[in-house]
Design a protein around this nucleic acid. Structure first.
Lengths: 234, 234
DNA sequence: TCAAAAGTGTTTGAGGTACACCCATGG
DNA sequence: CCATGGGTGTACCTCAAACACTTTTGA
């Protein structure tokens, strides 16, 4: 990127590719998005998704992982390609495709210091400010994908700690679907799937009585998946 | 593209983007794929998806439409971005992302002459030969997407003529899902959705008795869609 | 008249949805 | 002892799945 501003001819003459990350988190019953203020011109100081140019010798996936690690310190995070934004005029400076990817992170695990160092902030998903370029559209598309995908695959769990309670899980699905769920039916459905392992511990942060903690049984889940089982939470 | 081979330095130094199209058709009860033999080095003569570099001043979507029109003569075809293939080493010649898009076309409408002129061929989906680079993977991914998407949205209809019979439609779903369906249940389900318009004509190509032709009622469908109706065919 | 595809109803079981009360505990 | 969130059971109804025979008509 160093020569971007010095070598104008080559800049205008080239195709660039950016890996932009839509980073979701879940905290205090809210779905959150990690964004930051751009540090470079153009649009310096504006809110933006976190991204980077894809280097010539680098896989697109690697670029996204690099960005994510740089800003959160996390590796091995759930991340999936959303789609590529390829309008010729989407970036007024030069021709740049954006391969958008969304990530689901456990908000209790990220490196707070690193995040602050980069000028990043967590915003409630329903209060995201105006972002640079087509980034708001990307967030909307990512949300829709998350909603769609969470219905049939247990990806939502990537937003919770490894040990979680049923009420927590229900709350998560409620914010993803934007709809209240009946706790009796939710619990019944979840347990009938046979992929939750009940632990002996309780989480007492939300009530005197405490709620039992569970872990998701990925091993069983993957076996069931092979034989055409489908996880579905409406 | 003309200077690709003359200007080696710039070739190695640049990021390219290709729009590759996975073109599906449906004919004689089979799902088909349109591929062609590469006309240029490298890999000249090998089977390949149809694609083109995305021009600097062109939207990615436009590039795909351009390719599709060039080879089939068709415009206004159902086409959707599949995903971007971005491994650094996916193309041994130079750095090239591929933004893959899949298209569903009515096989009775394409321009046969044009297709032949380009050395293209329709292959049964279960007999596709080895393709160049990662193109076989793209086809697999597109198929999976088609299967997934057809379940909840009436996109399959883009593979049939405007007027179609229920048995034809059933056959289509059978090849997409790779599974036999019960004709009584299928018909019942379809008609209960209230989005098929029965015509007075019959198609007698498949039986003496003839089967009634139907049209899909997109107008009603889109209205129902707004109020949270969901089309679903298992 | 017969072969071959089109078209039609009913029964059953699984699972989604609606709904209200008791339990456990710390302050 | 009580306020607060955690946890449980039942009745109903919808819909998917299984299943077999009649109709039409051109050759």
């Amino acid at each position: 990127m160093a020569n971007l501003e010095t070598d104008l001819y080559s800049v205008k003459d080239k195709m660039y590719a950016a890996a932009d990350c839509i980073i979701f988190g879940f905290d205090s019953g809210k779905l959150k998005l990690l964004i930051f203020r751009r540090r470079v011109e153009p649009l310096k100081g504006e809110w933006s998704l976190i991204g980077s140019f894809v280097r010539l010798e680098e896989d697109v996936t690697e670029a996204a992982k690099r960005v994510l690690k740089e800003i959160t310190g996390l590796e091995n995070v759930f991340m999936e390609q959303l789609k590529t934004y390829g309008k010729a005029d989407r970036d007024p400076g030069f021709r740049c495709l954006s391969i958008a990817q969304y990530a689901l992170i456990r908000i209790d695990e990220y490196d707070e210091e690193l995040v602050e160092k980069h000028g990043a902030h967590w915003y409630n998903i329903d209060a995201v400010p105006g972002l640079v370029l087509d980034h708001n559209k990307m967030v909307q598309d990512a949300l829709e994908r998350l909603r769609q995908k969470a219905r049939y695959q247990p990806i939502g769990l990537n937003l919770l700690p490894e040990k979680f309670t049923i009420p927590q899980l229900q709350q998560l699905y409620e914010v993803i679907y934007q709809k209240e769920l009946d706790s009796r039916n939710f619990r019944k459905k979840l347990l009938s799937l046979k992929v939750l392992i009940k632990l002996d511990e309780k989480d007492k942060t939300n009530s005197r009585r405490g709620a039992f903690l569970y872990k998701f049984d990925y091993k069983t889940y993957h076996e069931l998946e092979k034989i055409g089982y489908n996880f579905e939470i409406s």
